[in-house]
Nucleic acid binder design. Structure first.
Lengths: 239, 239
DNA sequence: CCATAATTCAAGCATCTGCTTCAAGCAAGT
DNA sequence: ACTTGCTTGAAGCAGATGCTTGAATTATGG
């Protein structure tokens, strides 16, 4: 029987100090390697080696490679997403249901962006940024699950902050915001390469000073229906 | 000796009609599977099966899995990137070196965006969108090579269109633009999931109508140094 | 101190990976 | 007709993959 021992370990009931320690070492190693090479390109053997541990130990603690990824993400995201939800509901409450869009963006993007101030936080952002476009069904499932709740809060708050936008327009604008945020995190190096040394996406201050205002301005732009000459204002293509 | 036969095949000298046909079938199959599951998650065997062909045939025509990806990308991107470069230099010339930013964005993003009007084009955008954050060194190398030239043109044209922006600010704004574009292409389904049925990133008209104006507005925003209260205008942090 | 449970280990299993080999098939050009 | 070189096929290689096994080791509560 596999079940009992693993479940108690995973549920971390009665876990020994030594057990917890190697558990953390494995999580650290997996985080580092997943961020560097992507989930599919890392083997459980590599992770065990990097953690100065054993493959079986990893499976004992996490059940499977998929479970390991889930634990790696949960370890940091649980706290961060709770913080984001707290900030989002708070700025909704403080503004009586009509928050400023910059507060909404700050509440959603700020907490993850600021992670990049530490090296391990930067690595974690790289991991989640890359995972966000990972086609592997296991990865997709885990991300959907982890981000579902805070994502809903964000969309709701953004809609409240931009009541003049149609649902379709909000969808496209948030797509741009989401995409920019993820791209900054995934940090593929293309633009750094074109701009030369000295420009890096892990520069949190630069992101806060330049990227956030760009996104805020875009969100505040008047609805396209009014600006676009070919739009028929009487006929909305959503809802 | 491996060399001679493969090189002539790869250089497609003296290729027979039958040879060209299976070559295309393999490219189609690889494109479809790479787009669907990502480069690392697809095996040469799957590709051969999907193409109703043989592993050896794939290696005969493309030398390696890496060479196959290169061919898949080159088949479509060579034309598209040439078109983008043509449009970029044209709008630079027409405007006497001071193009409008919306023309620059349209020249860079438009050609790829419009690909999504056909099913196979949509699939190709999915492939390149996902590849853009792929950590696999083979994938990165190929993308850098393929996008280097047109990327340079784009940055140059954008800089000419926004002469008031510092290099750092341009860097961050283009990062947002690039990120939004890639995210639309990679189409991970997160926001569609939150917005419900009827919202899709392959809706080219929606992207042109809503996403492009968002990005244009963001690029046209006044420099952050002026807007941000904590910025010291006399001290630029770049160049 | 010792029984019981938690943890780690070396070894192995079945399957898959990219790629190669070598023989057979095919389409010309002469 | 027949040689020549391009193209495909079946089989196989060495190594990697996720995961399991069963025994050994370690920690901990009684």
């Amino acid at each position: 029987m596999v079940g009992t021992a693993i479940r108690t370990a995973i549920g971390s009931r009665r876990a020994s100090a030594a057990g917890r320690e190697t558990r953390e070492r494995i999580l650290d190693a997996a985080e580092r390697l997943f961020a560097e090479s992507g989930y599919s390109n890392v083997s459980t053997r590599q992770i065990a080696d990097e953690a100065r541990s054993n493959i079986a130990a990893a499976h004992y603690h996490f059940g499977s490679k998929e479970g390991l990824l889930e634990a790696v993400l949960g370890r940091r995201l649980d706290g961060i997403n709770a913080e984001r939800e707290r900030l989002l509901t708070q700025c909704m409450r403080d503004a009586g249901g009509r928050p400023a869009i910059q507060d909404v963006l700050e509440a959603f993007i700020g907490p993850t962006l600021r992670l990049s101030k530490t090296e391990e936080g930067r690595r974690f952002n790289l991991l989640t940024g890359r995972a966000s476009t990972d086609p592997n069904p296991e990865v997709k499932r885990i991300l959907f699950q982890v981000y579902d709740s805070v994502g809903r809060c964000f969309v709701e708050a953004a809609a409240a902050a931009c009541p003049d936008l149609s649902k379709a327009e909000l969808f496209w604008r948030l797509t741009c915001v989401y995409g920019a945020m993820m791209y900054i995190r995934a940090d593929n190096g293309r633009l750094q390469h074109l701009f030369g040394p000295g420009f890096t996406l892990s520069d949190v201050d630069g992101a806060l000073k330049y990227a956030m205002p760009f996104l805020t301005t875009g969100m505040q732009a008047p609805p396209s229906a009014a600006a676009a000459p070919d739009a028929t204002p009487s006929r909305r293509e959503d809802d």
